[in-house]
Nucleic acid binder design. Structure first.
Lengths: 222, 222
DNA sequence: CCTATCATCGAACACTTGTTCGAAGCGTCT
DNA sequence: AGACGCTTCGAACAAGTGTTCGATGATAGG
């Protein structure tokens, strides 16, 4: 539901962003030259600088635009839904759906977060933090309502993000389950893991609490 | 348990690798110059090339050495353990323990996997594939024994790796739970999620199977 | 048709990059 | 001492980098 038609300028900007994101996703930000971007967008090298004033700002625009959309979509989707478990399920669905449909941008967002300067980083990171806090609070709420015990909320939150964000490393739309299946699987994996099965826990987890590891012994440990 | 004392050469090589890994982890491979490495290791620029013949090989050595150790440690640890659930728990513990104690190298391994050439990539990736298959088979076995249904094994496998490997994005040893707690949390999250709670599932998951998402509507979708 | 604004371009600049090469330092054994 | 192999170095090179600048083409309104 685009609010208004995009101007010629905006249309071309979006095209440049989308194309650049694909190249960045493929070769990585730092090993992509502006000449690569020029080739991919079929624009002259100097012509690109009409749309942004540095390579770094190009990366920022991709990240900011992309992440803003995830959050806005999420906010809109969760509006009016009260049950925290249902909210979580919708959030997971939205996140994965957007991720799969914009894999290039999301890869760039996940992978090149540290490749921009302090100020820009801060701006993107603020939104990121908001999003993380949304999830963390949601999990806290669910934990309270369902008397979840023995799970660190921070660990749970980032485990969920890890599950979801890792997909750009392996997910192949052509051979893997579709987005709906992906959402269903991950929702089930995480949610019933988070809520826990008290009987099961007692049986399988407490039995081997002692650690079987020496400290990591390797050549790395000087 | 180092089998034999390292030669002067090997000692220095390891020092170079470890130092370089820290710099790569901090600034990223591509935006780290050989001059940065030279500064960090307090060696001359050309002196470095006595230990490897290109920047790329340096990255490869870090990745290969580091990953080989994870796998070897894992193999050794699992030897003689038959119960698949216990095997999985040990594997998770080993993985996280090594990850936390060698965060720089693991970050480089996870983050810069695509930054090396075809041949080197293939060599590292073979080991990676072995490792992934080990886990995937393990999960298959557990699923069979416990009549786990409705979970895609591939999705489950990479969800587990996602949970574990994502930690370099957030884990801070100074403020988060220690490795033991981390293992415990993630083991519980994943395992009881994977094994599932049939009663819970029926109650919370089937209720909302319809998707509440339009396709991702955003400026990105041309 | 003229003009003002938007959009694009080629060519060049200043700088950093990874890598090489020959020579010198170092320690150890004869 | 002498000689040999292992290790380190300074200086230089060729290639590629992001960015700038002034000028040219396109487009639409008067």
């Amino acid at each position: 539901m685009p609010a208004e038609p995009l101007s010629r300028y905006d249309q071309k900007l979006v095209h440049v962003l989308k194309t650049s994101a694909a190249v960045f996703a493929d070769k990585g930000y730092h090993s992509t030259s502006m000449r690569d971007i020029s080739r991919a967008t079929k624009m002259s090298l100097s012509g690109l600088y009409y749309y942004f004033k540095s390579k770094e700002e190009l990366l920022f625009l991709i990240q900011d635009y992309c992440f803003s959309t995830v959050i806005d979509d999420c906010r809109r989707l969760l509006e009016g839904v009260d049950d925290p478990i249902r909210r979580l399920k919708l959030l997971i669905e939205n996140h994965l759906n957007y991720f799969v449909n914009n894999m290039n941008e999301m890869k760039v967002l996940s992978h090149e977060a540290n490749s921009i300067s302090r100020d820009m980083f801060r701006k993107v990171n603020n939104k990121k933090r908001q999003y993380v806090e949304l999830v963390m609070n949601l999990l806290g709420e669910i934990a309270r309502e369902n008397r979840v015990e023995g799970v660190d909320i921070r660990v749970a939150t980032f485990s969920l993000f890890g599950m979801m964000n890792w997909i750009y490393n392996w997910y192949d739309p052509r051979k893997d389950v579709d987005v709906a299946g992906l959402s269903q699987n991950m929702t089930r994996l995480f949610l019933s893991g988070f809520l826990g099965d008290k009987a099961l826990e007692a049986k399988t987890l407490d039995a081997g609490r002692e650690s079987h590891l020496d400290r990591a012994v390797s050549i790395w440990q000087q």
